[in-house]
Simulated scan of single mutants.
Amino acid sequence: MYFLSLTLTVQAQWGWNNGWQWGVQQSPAISGNGGWAGWGPGAGPRINTPLGKVGINADFNYDGQIWGGEGGNAKVTPPGLLIGSDEMTKILLSCNPDPVYLPQTGSPKVVMRFHKLAVILDVRGIDLSKKNGRYRSLDKEIEKCGRVLVWADKNRQNLLLDSSDPARRRLVWSYADSVPLPHVYVEGVDAAQPGGAHFITWELDDSYGQNAFQRFFGEPAVWDRLMVSVRPSGITKPIVDTDPVWIKFSKPTR
């Protein structure tokens, strides 16, 4: 990824899974497509890179189901996904890095970047009235955007991100040390005011363990983004069949 400055400062280690690390973004990083990776509701579509593909999807039509590729412009068009201040929703994440196959004759060879791939989950409040989407201070952002929490589990035991905590707004881990989560749960806590929302960004980068010079010559990052707006009450959903699709029984004793 083409960084102009070192953007990640590791602060602590997340104990339950090797490879998780808390990080704080010191300044927005310029992405490979020339847009601000951390800001801007009008950021254009991601460019294809050799790193692979990532995706973030949710129930944008509020029918109780998440379909792959669903949402389209709803991901980044205000107000985005609406969540009640007493509500939590499941978000699907996908991350598929690509190895580099070397064209040649004879025995096949491959170059794998997995040792330096970083998987990043980030939450940021945005000001829809400004081109760059930024607030003057975190306090002003919280006042306008409200608060969201991102959990690893539906029982809310493992907190990943907190939009109101400057030390818990960005999470970075090594792809080689831990498999990325297939989904997370986003909880609405405090409602946003008009013109305020949050972006949740899911990113794959080749910057793990790399210095600023190495990052400059790395591949552009690939990322996907979801806009979330918290409302005092969520949208009414239809009755959803909650019966499991598969049921596993223990073998009978004979």
Rank of each mutant, 00 (worst) to 15 (best):
K90R: 12
P244W: 09
R113D: 08
L82N: 05
V245N: 08
S163E: 01
Y101H: 13
S163H: 03
V76M: 13
G195K: 03
F249V: 11
E70M: 04
N158W: 11
V148E: 03
Y185V: 02
R168A: 12
N18C: 06
L93W: 01
K75P: 01
D162Y: 06
V186F: 06
K237S: 07
L93A: 00
L81E: 01
G188L: 02
W223D: 07
Y2R: 09
A192R: 06
D205L: 07
Q11A: 10
G15K: 09
L121C: 02
G68C: 04
R124Q: 11
L159H: 05
D224P: 06
S94C: 06
W202Q: 02
G80I: 03
R134H: 04
R147F: 00
Y208R: 04
D206S: 13
S174E: 09
Q11L: 14
L160W: 11
N155C: 05
L6M: 04
F114W: 09
A12C: 05
T105L: 05
G84M: 09
R215W: 01
P220R: 10
G80T: 01
G69A: 03
R168L: 13
W16K: 05
I142Q: 04
K154V: 12
G15M: 11
K251I: 14
L82R: 14
D162I: 05
Q25G: 10
R156N: 08
F199P: 00
D162T: 14
F60W: 15
S85L: 05
K140L: 07
D177L: 13
R124P: 00
I142G: 00
P252H: 13
I47E: 13
G35E: 14
R215D: 02
G133L: 09
Q157I: 12
M112P: 00
W16T: 08
G125A: 14
H198F: 14
D190F: 07
A118Y: 01
G106A: 04
T7D: 10
I126E: 10
V245I: 14
I247Q: 15
G42F: 12
P108S: 02
K75T: 09
T49E: 06
